[in-house]
């Protein structure tokens, strides 16, 4: 169940749109922010708010890379594997991350803190290799800097799950 206030905000967003569907991505992102990932329950709520079926929400949710239909850790770690970051040696960073976190690509750490996924591209091709943890970018990485970034993110706790839409 989402709080009444959030529901009202989302309904207002839909009302502002030219068509309800136009607000679909915003609604999914806000629900994901609330739940941490887009749960089945959230899909149902999105469907109700948007006047769509759950399947129709699913059709959209599964298309976008930043909508998660499976549980993820408190913070998403995106590692850019684009050609520029490849050229800058992202593979070394990825191996290091996998070893540090004890997960494969797509996996969530045992403590539920991080989920590691590749992504392309982050539009910071001059600063590779780089990752984002939550909404923070860490660029020009070396393995040492990765360790520092992880340390920093662990300390900053699990309060704020990543949310791209809350710009």
């Amino acid at each position: 169940m989402i709080p009444e206030q959030l529901k009202k905000t989302l309904e207002a967003r839909v009302a502002h749109a030219f068509s309800a569907r136009e607000a679909a991505v915003d609604v999914m992102k806000d629900l994901q922010f609330h739940y941490g990932w887009l749960t089945d329950e959230a899909v149902g709520e999105a469907a109700e708010i948007l006047g769509l079926s759950r399947l129709q929400v699913e059709e959209l949710a599964t298309f976008y890379e930043m909508i998660y239909r499976r549980p993820v850790g408190n913070k998403m770690i995106h590692i850019c594997d684009s050609i520029s970051c490849w050229n800058a040696g992202y593979e070394k960073i990825l191996d290091h991350l996998k070893a540090r976190l004890g997960v494969e690509v797509g996996g969530t750490t045992a403590d539920g803190q991080f989920t590691l996924v590749p992504c392309c591209c982050m539009g910071r091709c001059g600063d590779g290799p780089l990752i984002s943890i939550g909404s923070t970018i860490y660029d020009n990485l070396t393995p040492e800097l990765v360790d520092q970034a992880l340390e920093l993110e662990r300390l900053s706790g699990s309060a704020a799950p990543e949310h791209q839409g809350q710009a």
Binding site: E22, V25, F63, C119, G165
Partner: peptide, 19 residues
């Protein structure tokens, strides 16, 4: 604000995304 997919940059895909 999109939720991320390269194909959204194609203008007609972008229109679909916006709708």
């Amino acid at each position: 604000l999109s939720a991320g997919r390269y194909i959204c940059g194609e203008e007609t895909a972008l229109i679909n995304a916006l709708e």
